[in-house]
Nucleic acid binder design. Structure first.
Length: 154
DNA sequence: GCCAACGTTGGC
DNA sequence: GCCAACGTTGGC
């Protein structure tokens, strides 16, 4: 089993939305590195740190899990949709998403600031300066440290 | 294939 | 709202 961090702006799609929808398609990823993770490496049952970016404060708000592996993002073909990709030629999809489901919402947000100070998270992708990747690999160790921090509370 | 210009991300 | 970091674009 692998571990990931999925980044989302809560104004666009928040953990509350995921809770309400039960199962959500992770749409709109338009970055090749993130796409490659989604298409090739994110597998059924993988665990996800659900992260709110562009929030006050930014941080991890819960745990989700993968319930269905990669399928093409349908919006890339829809000219009226904001995730339409005008550069596509033909029916070959370029962008993919996975289906996820909420596993646990933390009692309160675990802020990025705490992650940055935490022991053992020095090389975690999200704590690096200028880390813009929206789908990030997380090690098992990092994942368990984050869980511990979330339980202790801040 | 280089790289300057440009657009976007996201913490602060 | 600012701006550093970074990805993408497109002229050459």
């Amino acid at each position: 089993m692998k571990y990931w961090l999925f980044k989302t702006e809560p104004d666009v799609f928040s953990i509350e939305d995921l809770k309400r929808e039960k199962i959500s398609f992770w749409e709109g990823v338009r970055n090749y590195q993130a796409r490659n993770y989604l298409r090739d490496e994110v597998k059924l049952g993988d665990q996800i740190l659900f992260y709110h970016s562009n929030a006050n404060p930014p941080g991890v708000v819960g745990i989700a899990t993968v319930v269905k592996e990669a399928s093409p993002d349908p919006y890339q073909f829809d000219p009226k949709h904001k995730y339409f990709d005008p550069k596509l030629k033909g029916p070959e999809p370029r962008w993919y998403g996975v289906h996820i489901s909420l596993k646990e919402q933390f009692a309160e947000i675990l802020p990025l600031e705490i992650l940055k100070k935490a022991k053992g998270l020095d090389s975690m992708v999200v704590t690096q300066k200028g880390s813009r990747l929206s789908i990030q690999p997380v090690t098992e160790k990092e994942f368990s440290i984050v869980l511990k921090l979330a339980k202790i509370g801040v």
